[in-house]
Design a protein around this nucleic acid. Structure first.
Length: 261
DNA sequence: ATGTCTGAAGCATTCAGA
């Protein structure tokens, strides 16, 4: 069993290519100085990851990459150990899960499958992935670890988490089976950090690049941080940083920051 | 109704995936 004792600032961010967004990430690190930055959709293999840029700002990198698609990485200014490369219990050809222990917290960085490509098999992969994530969460609870599972879930948990008309009813991000799997994660006893502190506000973390979505605020809330029970009691801040979406050539996601004390 | 962006293959432009 492990207990967190330190004040922590942790950000999750789907950057949609870390090479295209290296300067954006550097600016974010310099200004916001999170203890951990969880990156998704780095879209490269480890040798192409711009680790030196981030090391110059005091951040060590751990990378689980693949060519062209997916890929996750964690930047840390604190010492850490890698506890999982890939989701335990899932035979996954895609680079979507990376977990570390830092300051006695286990932090899982995840990029959950979108589920809209590949037909029935593609959607079945998404559900299989969600069940494996739930099994991982259940195992960590059984071990009495403090933990956070954060990243791009590709799930709008409720109708309050997307602008009207943004997605068709059958989209994999809002399908009833998708939402049921997300609720099953919460029913284990996990806390959706943003909704715990902001139960009724309209809050999005993603806006499609297509014309008008950002200026008209036609967004989705799909980037989430789920907290184990003791960590939830330490939660003092949880919000997206919308300003980043106004920068030149931004990612279609904005960073979501969690503070624990 | 359409609209955008990224990386790959391969060298102009199309495709997949999001």
């Amino acid at each position: 069993m492990a207990y967190c004792s330190k004040r922590m600032k942790i950000t999750t961010w789907n950057v949609n290519s870390v090479r295209a967004r290296a300067a954006h990430v550097e600016r974010f690190l310099a200004v916001q100085q999170p203890d951990l930055l969880l990156l998704q959709e780095i879209k490269c293999e480890e040798p192409a990851f711009p680790a030196a840029n981030f090391a110059a700002l005091g951040y060590q990198s751990v990378v689980l990459g693949q060519k062209s698609y997916n890929g996750v990485a964690i930047l840390s200014r604190l010492p850490f150990n890698v506890t999982a490369r890939g989701l335990p219990g899932l035979d996954d050809a895609q680079a979507r899960y990376l977990e570390i222990e830092c300051e006695s917290i286990l932090v899982g960085n995840l990029y959950l499958p979108n589920g809209n490509s590949g037909g029935d098999a593609g959607y079945a992969y998404k559900l299989r992935w969600m069940k494996a994530l739930r099994a991982r969460a259940a195992a960590l609870l059984e071990q009495d670890h403090d933990f956070m599972l954060a990243g791009d879930y590709n799930v709008c948990p409720t109708d309050a988490d997307l602008a009207q008309g943004t997605l068709p009813p059958g989209d994999a991000l809002v399908r009833p089976e998708t939402r049921a799997e997300f609720r099953a994660l919460l029913w284990l006893g996990l806390t959706d950090a943003v909704r715990a502190l902001h139960p009724t506000e309209i809050i999005y973390s993603f806006w499609d690049y297509q014309v008008g979505c950002w200026p008209r605020d036609k967004g989705l809330r799909i980037d989430h941080a789920l907290l184990s029970p003791r960590l939830a009691e330490k939660l003092i801040y949880a919000l997206p940083d919308r300003e980043v979406r106004n920068e030149e050539q931004p990612s279609d996601h904005c960073p979501v920051t969690i503070k624990l004390d």
